[in-house]
Every structure is written in C-alpha cells, then in structure tokens.
Design a protein around this nucleic acid. Structure first.
Lengths: 233, 233
DNA sequence: CAAACTTAGTGTATTTTTTACACTTGGGGA
DNA sequence: TCCCCAAGTGTAAAAAATACACTAAGTTTG
C-alpha cells in the first residue's frame, strides 16, 4: 500500500463461502487462480470487486455466477472483513489492474454464506478463475489472503443458524428419508445424534409429511419417503 | 452519483448504533448535523468514513469517540449496508468534500452495535456534529439516509443476543438487585417477565451472588444487593 | 403510632422438553 | 435360507418452562 496516499477510497469486494452438501461430507467451493508472476497458483474463495450500480447482495450473486457459473443460490451476508493489511500481496491481484481508480488501495470484503446441494451445481470456471472445484472441508488447503479465517467464521455461523433457526431442509431432494435429514444435521454439526430423539423432534415440528412411497434399490429395509411442508417453514 | 464514472472505488464508512440503558427506557445515541444548505438539520447515527490505515473495528471506535466523545465501549459489527442509492442526498454530506478522491461515489457503511449504561457516558458533540444526545427509542425521529433501517436491524440483533447469548449484565451497577436485572431484560425485550420464574432462572445460572447488603433510601422493602460472578460469564 | 403504600421475596403443581437406551423389521445379496 | 444393513419404534427419568398469589419490610402520611 502506498505511503503517499491519504484517505484513498478502498476497494470493496464480496467473497462467497458456498458450502456444498453431497450426502456424505461438507464441501466448500474454491477457485484456483494464477498469481501475477504466472508461476504460482493460489486457492481462494470466489470473490471480486463490486461495481458502481449494484447492491451488495446483488454483487455477491453476480460475482459467484461470473466466476463459478453458479447462480440462483441464496447468499446471506455474514460479516465484513476490513483489516488494512488483509490483502497484503495486492500486487498478485491481476484483476485489480486497469479496473479501478485506486488499485493500490486496501481491499475491504463483505463475506456471504450459502449452503447448497452439490449435485445441483456443477461449477464452471470463467473470469479469472483457472479452475473451480468442490473441496472437502476436512482436507482444506491453505487459502489466499484471510480466506481461511473467513471460512472458519462462516462455518461457525452456519452451525449457529442450523441450531437456532431450523434451516437446511432445502438441501434435501424432493423426497427424502428421515435418515437423510439426520445425516445432514450430523454432517453440519459435526457430531452424532440419537436416532429416536431426532425423529421425535423432527416429526413434532410438523415440517415434513410422510408420503406413501418407499426407498428403492437400497440393500436394507427401505425407508419411508417424506416431503417438506413448505407452508410451515 | 456521476453517470460518467465507471467502477469508482466507493466511500466506506462505519455507523455506530449505541443503545443506552437508564434503568427506565432504552435510548439511542444520535447526532444532529447541519445539511449542506445550512438551513436544515438532520438526525443521524454517529458515523464517518474510515481512513486508510485502520481496521473496521478500530474505525468504529475512533469515529464514535471523535464525534460523540464516547470511548471504551465494546462495539460489535453486525452488518454492512451497501444499497447503491442508500446515500442519495450525497450533496448534503459536507464532511465528504475535500477529503476523498471520489466524494461523489456511493457510500457503503459497516454498522456496529453497542449497549451501554447511559450514566457512564455523557456525550459531547465535536467534529461535524452540532449536537449529540440520547433519544428515547420509543419516540424516535426520522433519521438521515437509511439509518432508521440500520437501527431497526440493530435492535433485532440486540434482542437476539440477549436471549441466546446471555449478555447484558455489564449494564448493571457494581451492586444491583434482582429487580434491576429483570427490568433490564424487560426493557430490552419489550415485554414483561414473571418475577418468580425469572429469579429462579437467574439464580440457577450462578452468574450473580448475594452480598450481605441491602438497598437504602427506597420507599419500600429494601432488596438484597447482588454482585456479578465474573468467572462464570 | 397506625394505616397505607410500594416493591421484595418466596413455593408448588403442571406441562413440556430433553435425554438415555435396545430390540424387531423388511428388503437385497450371497 | 441365512446374513447383512439401516429402518423403525416406546418408555421412563430428568430437566426446564410455565402459571399463579400471598406475606414481608421498609417509607410516608395523617
């Protein structure tokens, strides 16, 4: 950052922490991008500068869509990150050049959070991303800038929402078993839950209804399939 | 906002929603400032642009202190507001002139939240504030920009924290009665609570201990005074 | 000094929620 | 036919939440 500038307007970006659920593990959407010297690559959350005429929520959706091809997901703002040195290797940010009045200024980012079914979204790299991919959360590489910290805070928030605000059902297929819901909760919360107590609770909330169909093609007793009661959510 | 500029770096400010508790009502710290035409005044939350070398949390504390004289409070970031037209009467922002490269650009703000004892903080206007004052929350004037909305979201968040994260005891004097805690909760949550049940709960949590002292100078049965168990918080 | 006023302080019964825990069932595969 | 596997089910105990009304101890007033 230049020593000679005073009160330069900062760059403002959005970063998207998109968790993906594949019925087995929690994944996170990452991009791989070339660094300025063209030798090294780095991993990062999908994110980019906002433009003049868009709101922050709009920016998050646009940026996610432009970089990863993923659109139509609900992105929830969860925190702004603004340490003056959070993007210290600013010279590596190719995309900042020839784009802004103050490319050398600090970068403040507004972080967004989402949780989606991985199957529904096949990321396709474009814009400055060399590659976009789902990465298992429990074998996470080191990320650019402060993105590991952003991710960590996003996960805390995701769990908090899950426990306190009964979210997450939208991750299930149209018809699902109670076992699938339980697994979803166990994966997000990172701990096992008692089967009988979990079922009791879910059914009491009346958020799901049994259909008269059963699982097929499984090598054990087929489970009853349930659907969401959209009106009760 | 100029039509000719593209991808101008935005202005970034912090705004502080400081709730004040006076044992009776919930108040909010407001400033009165002159508008550019020098005729009208407007009410607003204390807030200002960040400067280059400070983090967002630091900026919030600096700005609050500079404008209102209040320092040493815990300010918690709760949301960024970035609608492109949220500061539409940008020409009224005297303080933006001769200060930034892009004074005409949009203003994104990061909002902070705090709750303090009013008695501990006597606001003193300085900087561009004509006046700084505590305003009762239930007779709130119309505020500048989107500050009414910011305030409303801050209140939601404050209540949520109170219920889910057992905060707020720091607002009480060194020694306090159980009635005072209950009143604090009732004021924040905006509803009455059952005295016996409330006491049962507070005492079970072991967050307070009885002293051997009593209230004096009250015109009724004096209550036992309690102190905080800091180690259990 | 007695009466009135005001908030402090206290207990119980009921309902609801949470927790712990183990066996039988139905389908597919071998 | 037997085995494997997750589905599915109930109960008892403990903990938490709720509803509810009177007596106590000071101060003020007449």
């Amino acid at each position: 950052m230049s020593e000679t500038l005073k009160n330069v307007n900062p760059n403002v970006s959005v970063d998207c922490v998109v968790f993906g659920f594949d019925n087995e593990k929690l994944n996170i959407l990452l991009i791989e991008q070339k660094m300025a010297n063209k030798e090294k690559v780095q991993f990062a959350l999908p994110g980019d500068l906002i433009v003049d005429d868009e709101g922050l929520d709009d920016a998050a959706n646009r940026v996610l869509s432009e970089i990863t091809g993923i659109s139509g997901v609900f992105l929830r703002q969860f925190k702004a990150f603004g340490d003056p040195n959070r993007v210290s290797d600013i010279k590596d940010l190719d995309w900042l050049k020839n784009y802004r009045q103050n490319p050398q200024a600090r970068v403040i980012t507004v972080a967004y959070l989402s949780l989606v079914k991985m199957d529904d979204f096949q990321p396709e790299a474009s814009s400055f991303a060399e590659r976009v991919f789902w990465q298992e959360l429990d074998s996470l590489p080191s990320l650019a800038f402060d993105h590991n910290q952003i991710l960590s805070e996003a996960l805390d928030r995701l769990r908090d929402d899950f426990v306190n605000h009964r979210t997450g059902f939208e991750l299930l297929p149209e018809m699902f078993t109670l076992g699938q819901i339980q697994k979803l909760y166990e994966i997000i919360l990172g701990k096992e839950l008692d089967k009988r107590n979990f079922r009791k609770k879910i059914l009491k909330e009346k958020l799901v209804s049994a259909t008269n169909q059963k699982q097929t093609g499984v090598l054990h007793k087929p489970a009853i399939l349930y659907t969401l009661n959209h009106e009760n959510i």
